[in-house]
Design a protein around this nucleic acid. Structure first.
Lengths: 153, 153
DNA sequence: ATATGTGCAAATCCTTTGCACGTGC
DNA sequence: GCACGTGCAAAGGATTTGCACATAT
C-alpha cells in the first residue's frame, strides 16, 4: 500500500467513525509515514511539529490509538518504558528480533505465526485475535566484537 | 523443581554473586512462591509484608530483577502499565494467551517455540537468546456470552 | 570492619486528563 | 451552531534513586 493510499484510508477511517480530519491529525500522519524506523511518541511529536508547529504532545498521544486501530500503525512494545510505533506496510505477521546489546529492532515477516497462534490457543479452546512474537538475540557485531556499534546505553 | 530447591537455588545465586542473603529477600522469595497466579510488584509487596513487615516497596523492586536473572521468576509484560511476574517452574518455552475481554492470562507450554525463534532469527544471522509469544484471544465465555465472568474493566 | 542492603520520600518517565478555547462539518 | 478537537499544564501510575542508617559476611 502506497503512502498516498494510506493517507486516503486514514481520512476515510476518520470520516466513517465520525471523527474530524484536522490539520494536526494529517501532520501526525505525514510525520509517521516519513519515518523509516521505529519511532516513539516523542519522536513523532518532534517531526509532526516540523510540519505543523501547532501539534501538541496531547494530540499525538490521542492520535496514536486512532492510527493503531485503523491498522495504519503497528504498536511495538518490547518492554522498555516507552512504546514504539511503525507505519504499517500491511502485514501483521511480523516478529520483532531485538538485539540484547544495542536494542536495535529487526522486523521480519513470519507468515507461519498465524498457524502458531492458532495451534497454541486451540489447546485452550480460545479464538486467537492477534499474536506477537519477540525474539531476543545477539546481533552479528555483538557476537564478533563483544559490543554493538549502535549501542546507546 | 520444588519450592525448597528453588529457595536453595536463590540463596546459592545470591552468594555466588556476592549478594547478601537478607530476611527481606527471603520474605520476598517466599511471598512470590506462595502465589499461584501472576502477580504485580504491588501484590508481592503486600504479601511479603505479611511475612516480614519491614519489607519496603523499593526492596521489592530491587529484588525482582535478581530473581528474574536467576530464572526463579518469569517476567510477563502484556502491555498493561505494570509488569507481571510468575514463579518459574523451570520451562522457558511458554506462551501467554491473553483474553481480549477479561485480561486473564493462560500460560501454556510451547516447546516448538525454540525452533521458531531460531528459524526467525537465522534469517538475520542473529543468535537467539530467548523468545516470547503472546497471543490475544477471545476466551470461551466471551464468545458464548459476549462478556467474560472474570472481567475487571 | 566494611561493603551491601534497606526504608523512606522525592524524583523520573511516559502517558492521560480537565478545562477553556478553537474549528471542521 | 455545536459537537468534537486542541493546547496547556497538571495529574497519574509504575518504577527508580539519593541518602542516612542498618546489617550480613
Amino acid at each position: 500500500m502506497s503512502v498516498e493510499a494510506a493517507r486516503a484510508k486514514f481520512q476515510s477511517y476518520l470520516s466513517e467513525k465520525g471523527l474530524r480530519v484536522t490539520s494536526q491529525r494529517l501532520a501526525i500522519f505525514d510525520a509517521a509515514f516519513a519515518q523509516k524506523e521505529h519511532f516513539t511518541a516523542e519522536d513523532l511529536l518532534e517531526h509532526a511539529r516540523k510540519i505543523d508547529d501547532s501539534v501538541s504532545r496531547a494530540t499525538v498521544y490521542r492520535t496514536l490509538p486512532i492510527m493503531t486501530e485503523s491498522a495504519l500503525l503497528r504498536e511495538v512494545d518490547i518492554g522498555r518504558g516507552e512504546k514504539l510505533y511503525l507505519a504499517s506496510t500491511g502485514s501483521t505477521q511480523v516478529a520483532q528480533v531485538v538485539c540484547v546489546d544495542c536494542d536495535r529492532i529487526f522486523e521480519i515477516s513470519a507468515p507461519f505465526m498465524e498457524w502458531y497462534g492458532s495451534t497454541v490457543s486451540s489447546k485452550l479452546g480460545l479464538k486467537p485475535v492477534s499474536q506477537r512474537l519477540q525474539v531476543s538475540a545477539q546481533c552479528i557485531a555483538f557476537r564478533e566484537r563483544g559490543s554493538c556499534p549502535n549501542r546507546t546505553r
